[in-house]
């Protein structure tokens, strides 16, 4: 019983993290049909940015509560700038090329950004544990839960609700839905697809950076964190269906719970299980759980 509860709470916390990373990736894919490998870099930049913010903030002895907010704001600002530069500076030149070629372009960008990180922050590791300590723990029976994990789940849930609301009920969200559904018709009806692309990519980049900032207190921020994250995010969106927000949510929950179960019951299959789930879903639902195939007409 205790194990089951632990699996559930760990799984939820892990799912919250996965969703945060995957939601930007799936948004960009849904709208722009770009599977963005550089999303891992957004995550890494967000984490490094948050660590930098923590360094600046906590060294001055300012009130604890504001530090976390400052970390997030700085990370998202970095995401905004990075997204803008990439979309305007690189990606717009390859629109219309093969999907797979565009993936490789983002892979090239990812390689470049890996070294930009070294250039800016150097090869050493960083930590930004302060918010985690500040948040403290809560004890439920024998189980100790980190308040920060609870916060993480709450923010992810909030993000999911916000995304749902924004896509359904705001003007921009509806525009996005139209573009996702049929790009050419959207353009024919006078929707400025160029602007939609730029804004979407920036939002996606900011979400990636947010994911990094949120995880920063929990991890050691070191070279290569983006490499690991991107393939996890791929697994989540492949399970849920690429381009689907609700898919990313369900994908994150499935992968999160499966991994937590593996960690508690059979630690040696921890990594295996994530990709086994991904492969299994792809085998039975090639387009993921939440999207379907479009038949070709002849």
């Amino acid at each position: 019983m205790l194990t089951a509860f632990a699996i559930l709470t760990d799984g939820l916390a892990y799912a919250a993290y996965l969703f945060m990373v995957a939601v930007g990736l799936t948004l960009i894919f849904g709208v722009m049909k770009i599977l963005n490998v550089a999303h891992g870099s957004f995550y890494a930049f967000g984490a490094y940015g948050a660590a930098m913010a923590a360094g600046i903030y906590y060294d001055r002895g300012l009130p604890e509560a504001g530090g976390f907010l400052f970390m997030i704001l700085l990370a998202m600002a970095i995401g905004l700038v990075l997204g803008l530069i990439l979309e305007r500076g690189v990606l717009r030149f390859v629109y219309g090329r093969d999907e797979v070629i565009v993936v490789l372009v983002t892979y090239a960008v990812f390689l470049i950004l890996e070294d930009v990180i070294v250039f800016i922050w150097g090869p050493q590791s960083y930590a930004a544990y302060q918010p985690m300590v500040w948040a403290g723990n809560v004890e439920i029976g024998e189980l100790v839960l980190s308040n920060y994990d609870i916060l993480l789940v709450a923010i992810s849930a909030g993000l999911a609700l916000f995304a749902y609301w924004a896509l359904k009920f705001t003007r921009y969200g509806r525009l996005l839905t139209v573009v996702i559904f049929d790009r050419e018709t959207a353009a024919a009806f006078g929707i400025n697809v160029t602007v939609v692309y730029t804004v979407t990519f920036i939002i996606g980049a900011m979400l990636g950076a947010l994911g990094g900032a949120m995880m920063a207190p929990k991890i050691s921020i070191t070279l290569g964190i983006g490499v690991e994250v991107i393939v996890l995010a791929f697994a989540v969106v492949a399970v849920g269906g690429m381009g689907s927000i609700e898919g990313a949510l369900v994908g994150a929950l499935i992968v999160g719970i499966c991994r937590a179960a593996a960690v508690h019951l059979m630690p040696q299959i921890e990594l295996f299980v994530i990709y086994a789930v991904m492969a299994l879903v792809l085998v039975f639902r090639p387009y993921g759980l939440f999207t379907r195939a479009q038949p070709r007409k002849i």
Partner: peptide, 19 residues
């Protein structure tokens, strides 16, 4: 499988071996 789905499934398979 084709296109991006082919890429993803093959990725998953190689990551299984890695895991």
């Amino acid at each position: 499988y084709r296109e991006i789905f082919f890429a993803m499934l093959s990725l998953a398979m190689s990551m299984i071996l890695y895991g």
